[in-house]
Design a protein around this nucleic acid. Structure first.
Lengths: 162, 162
DNA sequence: CGGATGTGTTGGCCTGGCCAACATAGCGAG
DNA sequence: CTCGCTATGTTGGCCAGGCCAACACATCCG
């Protein structure tokens, strides 16, 4: 028995039975759903064991702040595709750990300016390493060339501005 | 205002702001997560408007039953990667619509044999068409060759038996 | 025979994503 | 300048999909 009863349940895969119906196997939406399950499983496991309680939302926010500097919460939401309300909650968590700071915008009383702290940057860099490891694990079945191809194709898929 | 207040919220995309942090844009897990969001958004919209209240779970179960014939609930769960408990609930729903039938296995008293009805097959074929349309929509940004490539790569990714 | 393993069911939990409503601040057209 | 539209942060809630634990049995195997 693991020392931590709440250790993240690494995908048990008790459903590792044979192939799915061919109706599903050939469909992009089904495959993407399975890829997402695998991806988020790995991420959850990583955040659980090396994330110190932070989650995807937190990482995304720290990344945006480090890359583009201080920003309002609404802008952060747009950059990271997180809903305003969820941004609020995640920032409160980050603030309580002193990884970011909120300060009122003098020019716009209704707006907060969020800044990443030195400690926050440090934390972000640690998470970067963890997440890079997860990329490798996730992409393990593909060769380097295939990985590049995959990333190109998925980018095109989700960035179709249409 | 749409006539149905509960019409499925097609992804509002009010977060259609610019690009995400480069830390995210290049990572497979982030891209897959976005692809999944898009995919499930389209599926939800499709099920909402043409699915008559059925959802992904139901489709998967009908597909497995049609393809491999009658099966126990546990086997269905393994084929479709749905947890036993969720299989129970989804089958109850399907049964109430007369799309499947549950009967006790004479040989194994504890086991149910689930069979798809004629009506169930009919429904499945309708859903097939809807879902095929969604594949096209989802893959729209890719050429035919790229679509094939994409499907090959994702298959390899999720079917790595390791 | 007796323990291990399989089965269906109930009830619960969690994450990520989304929405509505509210109070209030800024902005723009008249 | 004022009235209305839009933007902002916050609270509180909903949902789907995915998981797990526990229970009551049945079946199987050593």
């Amino acid at each position: 028995m693991p020392h931590n009863c709440y250790a993240w349940r690494v995908p048990t895969n008790h459903h590792d039975g044979g192939p799915a119906p061919t109706r599903l196997e050939g469909r992009a939406t089904w495959l993407v759903s399975r890829a997402y399950t695998r991806s988020s499983g790995l991420l959850n496991a990583g955040f659980e064991s090396h994330g110190g309680g932070l989650r995807g939302y937190h990482y995304r926010l720290l990344a945006a702040l480090e890359e583009w500097g201080p920003a309002s919460q609404a802008d952060l939401g747009r950059m990271t595709r997180i809903d305003r309300s969820d941004v609020t909650a995640a920032l409160t968590e980050l603030e309580s750990r002193h990884l970011v700071e909120r300060s009122a915008d003098p020019a716009h009383k209704r707006r907060n300016i969020v800044t990443i702290t030195a400690e926050g940057v440090e934390r972000l860099l640690e998470l970067d390493k963890v997440i890079d490891g997860i990329q490798d694990e996730f992409l393990a079945p593909l060769t380097a060339a295939q990985r590049r191809q995959f990333i190109t194709l998925v980018s095109r898929l989700v960035n179709a501005q249409r």
